[in-house]
Structure formats: structure tokens, C-alpha cells
Design a binder for these strands. Structure first.
Length: 442
RNA sequence: GCGCCCAUCGUCUAUCGGUUAGGACACCAGGUUUUCAUCCUGGGAAGAGGAGUUCGACUCUCCUUGGGCGUGCCA
């Protein structure tokens, strides 16, 4: 039985930064790979910001990314008495002292060694060292009697039996302080692993100024949790072979801290977008269909009397974000589909277009059956010398309002003869009417 | 300023002394195609600089340069 225990210990602020959730991902993967326990500790000592809503946001983000934890979450604010008691003990043993460092009243300060060398082995960064003289005593209890992060964090780690602390690079310096705290308490020092920072194009820490920076934002924008998870994993870690798109099982199997890089990684939104597309295309059809239907219904479109399977098959490969689904294919579900002004200007504004559309409608009317092969043949006949494109483009915009979408003949078959012919004639009439719906468009 | 850390294509990365330095994203070209997307093929693109160690360095050591983090009664 493995005794490994790791934790994710965020302070709930109402937003979960991607750098932070990445630390959660690495902790989770490490636990799952080693058969250890993954715990969640809510460092809610900032009573102002740690609202129930903020905590819920955090929990939602964990759930969305399927980062399940193995024991009930621990709230740091519940342990304040314990933290203070340890500080008292330090005071009694002369490991800490009281001082008023700036007129805010007396605080408790922990003594750091004054000579020698502080060292530890970082599982990612290797051997780390620092001269004692380069460290300073630090505050562990504020003048107002509240414990400081360093103290609370270490004590909670001890109480939760944490064996490996996996966190962001920005904590490297703190580690020397924390280790002294563990020693002062007489607890075994955990193993440490510091993950590289996620930075922007400028090499600066990635922040909200650089685009979506919080888990909730990616969710709103339509990213799949598994895609974000996979992408974040690849920032600072690689499996060692050429695989990039990995299942959760593969990740768990392959993940080791030794394979973590220690240099900062730039956040590349383009690659995330690609990854998201990969995940959408690889989604089981039934699951995509479920998502598709719920999005279409949510947009107020009726999903009856259509060849849903056929539509879904056409749309899945073309979906970049789930949220774009209704806008990209409303014409399958309603007669009041919107027309893209640019498409109208480009494909429907020719003088001969109304007549063409009527000719096509008449030709289609006679088709039996009305399918890809027969419509294709009919268009070929009508186009003659001028090339199929001259017919295809106006017809596409007329029946769908858009210049992009499934192949025209697939689209026509899915729509059916009746709708197609009616739309062609309606659009033709509208184009001829000086007061018609297209008149206002350029 | 001082301390700690980092450094391979534009980006994410593989390489654990000997490779034509590989893959992916992005980009460009071509193929499939009515559009878009997918898919396929091809292309350009990298070891920051300088010393050393070595028969041989991207890989080990040192220096320089560049960057990040820390240096809070924030976490």
C-alpha cells in the first residue's frame, strides 16, 4: 500500500487560475500514478475573499476537470487554534520571538539558521541550496493574532500527512523556510517538486491581461475540460515519445515528476484550439449528438422532423467550439435562418441570380429521388459550361444563409426537396423585390 | 542591489557524449473538394555567445548575456 499523499491547496478567490489548476492536475496525476491519495485543502484564511461563492467556484472547476479527491476537503480556517498553539510552542522553546517590526504591534517571528547551508532535493529542479546567511527570520503570526501562510501551510501539511508537495515555481524560495518549520515541529520533511510557471508571449507570468486565464473563462468559451487538461499537462511535461493527445488512463500511466521540465512554458492559445478540435472530433458520436441537441434546443430551435444523425455527422468534424453550433447550422431547424450579409453580397447580388434560383428550384422539383447523386447531376446539367461553382454558391447561400458548411449536396439531401425548393423560390422573390429583405444589404 | 532558478525551430517539446537534432501547433505549397472543415503529401524553421573537459559535445564544467522567481505583519 502506498503511503503517498499529495494535496492541492488553493486559496479560494472566486477565480481559479490556469497555473494553479495545472498544479492540481500534476498533483492529481502523481497521486493516481503512484496509487497515493490526492487531497484538497481550501486555504480560506482570507475571510474577505473566501466567500461561499468563491469556494463553490473552486469546487466547480475541480469537478469540471474531473479532479476528484480522496478525502473530504479541509478548510484551513478551521485550524487556526492549532496553528497558534504551535507558534506558542516555538516561542516557549526559543525558536521564535516577538517583535514590533514597523509599529503595527508585536508579531511572532521564526528564527532561521544563521550559519551553514540549507539544501533540499527538488524532484523537478534537482539539488537546491542556499546559504543560511541569505535567509531571514520571518513572521509566522501577525500582530492581529492571525497565522501567516508559511505556518498554516506547513502545519496543515503535517496534519494531513502530506508526503510530496507539488506546487508552482514561485514557492521555491519559501521551501527553505518551510523545511525549517517542519524540522522545528519535529515532523518529517516532505519531498518537493516545483513546477515551471506558465508565461505569456512576453515571458511574463500569464495573467488575465493575456486572454482567458481562469478555468471558468475557458469553460464559457466552449473549451472541453479534457482538452484543457491535456493541453495544460503538455506545458512542462512530455511523455517522452511523440504522443500528445492522451487519454486520462495514458496520462496516469505515463506521468512522472522526472519528466517535468523546469523552464517556464508559454501559453499557446492556438495549440489549445487545435487540441479542443481534436477532442471534439474524437468525441463518441452519441455524446457529441447529446451536446449538439442541447445547444440547439437552448438556442430555441426545434429539433423535430430532421435527420439528426445526418446533420450531426456533418457538423461534428466542423465544430471548433460547442457554443458555435446553433449559429453554424440553424438553417437545418428553422425557416427563419439568418443570412450572412457578406455571403449575400458575394453570391446573391448578381442580376441573374433570382432567375437561376428559380430554374434550380424547377429542376429540383422534378427529381425523384432527391438525394446527393440526383441533385449533383441536376446542378451539373444546369451549370453547363459555366462550371458548377456558379450554381453551387448561390444555392448554398440561398438555402443556408451561409457560405460555409457541409457539402452542398449533403446539405440539400438533409434539408429535403420541399424545403430546398421553397427556400430557393422565397429567396428569388425576395431578391427581386425592391423592398425585400435583401434590399437593405449592399 | 543581493539570493535562487532557467535557456533546442516563432510556440510546446524529444534527445539522458557519437542522430541527416525527431514530433506537434502555427505558417507556406500541393492533393482531395462546390464552400468550410476534415484528411493526405511536401517545405521552410532550433541547440543564446565564449572558454574549457573529451577522440567526440545540444548533452558535462565555468564565464557572459538574456529571462523568471524571491527578497511582505500577501499567498
Amino acid at each position: 500500500m502506498s503511503a503517498i499523499r499529495v494535496r492541492f491547496a488553493p486559496s479560494p478567490t472566486g477565480n481559479v487560475h490556469i497555473g494553479n489548476i495545472r498544479a492540481a492536475i500534476f498533483n492529481w496525476l502523481f497521486a493516481r500514478h503512484t496509487g497515493g491519495k490526492f487531497l484538497l485543502r481550501v486555504e480560506d484564511t482570507d475571510r474577505e475573499r473566501s466567500t461561499p461563492e468563491a469556494i463553490q467556484t473552486l469546487l466547480d472547476a475541480m469537478k469540471w476537470l474531473k479532479l476528484d479527491y480522496d478525502e473530504p476537503e479541509v478548510y484551513q480556517s478551521h485550524n487556526t487554534q492549532r496553528h497558534l498553539a504551535v507558534a506558542e510552542d516555538f516561542l516557549r522553546r526559543g525558536l521564535a520571538y516577538k517583535e514590533d517590526k514597523g509599529g503595527k504591534g508585536e508579531c511572532v517571528i521564526f528564527r532561521m539558521p544563521k550559519q551553514g547551508r540549507l539544501t533540499y532535493h527538488d524532484l523537478v529542479k534537482g539539488d537546491m541550496k542556499k546559504k543560511a546567511e541569505d535567509t531571514q527570520d520571518f513572521v509566522i503570526v501577525r500582530a492581529d493574532g492571525s497565522p501567516v501562510f508559511h505556518l498554516a501551510n506547513v502545519i496543515d501539511d503535517i496534519d494531513q500527512g502530506i508526503t510530496h508537495v507539488i506546487r508552482g515555481d514561485d514557492h521555491v524560495e519559501n521551501t527553505f523556510k518551510h523545511i525549517e518549520l517542519f524540522k522545528a515541529i519535529g515532523a518529517p520533511v516532505p519531498q518537493y517538486a516545483h513546477l515551471p510557471m506558465i508565461v505569456n508571449n512576453m515571458g511574463k507570468p500569464y495573467s488575465k491581461r493575456d486572454g482567458a486565464a481562469f478555468v471558468g473563462e475557458f469553460r464559457e468559451q466552449g473549451y472541453l475540460p479534457d482538452a484543457l487538461f491535456n493541453f495544460l499537462l503538455l506545458l512542462g511535461w512530455a511523455p517522452g515519445d511523440d504522443r500528445e493527445v492522451l487519454t486520462r488512463e495514458e496520462m496516469i500511466e505515463l506521468f512522472t515528476l522526472e519528466k517535468c521540465k523546469s523552464s517556464p512554458a508559454r501559453f499557446d492559445m492556438k495549440k489549445l484550439q487545435w487540441m479542443n478540435g481534436e477532442y471534439i472530433r474524437n468525441t463518441p458520436e452519441e455524446e457529441y449528438e447529446r451536446e449538439f441537441v442541447s445547444r440547439v434546443k437552448a438556442a430555441g430551435l426545434p429539433v423535430e422532423g430532421v435527420d439528426l444523425k445526418g446533420i450531426v455527422a456533418q457538423m461534428q468534424v466542423r465544430t471548433k467550439f460547442y457554443r458555435d453550433i446553433p449559429g453554424n447550422c440553424s438553417y437545418f431547424f428553422t425557416e427563419t435562418y439568418p443570412f450572412d450579409p457578406k455571403g449575400v453580397a458575394k453570391r446573391l447580388k448578381g442580376e441573374d441570380v433570382p432567375a437561376l434560383l428559380e430554374k434550380v428550384a424547377a429542376a429540383f422539383e422534378a427529381l425523384e429521388p432527391f438525394d446527393q447523386a440526383t441533385t449533383n447531376e441536376a446542378v451539373k446539367q444546369l451549370a453547363g459550361e459555366s462550371g458548377m461553382g456558379s450554381v453551387i454558391h448561390p444555392v448554398r447561400v440561398a438555402v443556408s444563409g451561409l457560405t460555409e458548411g457541409p457539402g452542398l449536396f449533403e446539405m440539400l439531401e438533409l434539408l429535403g426537396k420541399e424545403k430546398v425548393c421553397r427556400r430557393l423560390r422565397t429567396v428569388a422573390a425576395g431578391l427581386k423585390d425592391p423592398a425585400g429583405p435583401f434590399a437593405a444589404l449592399p
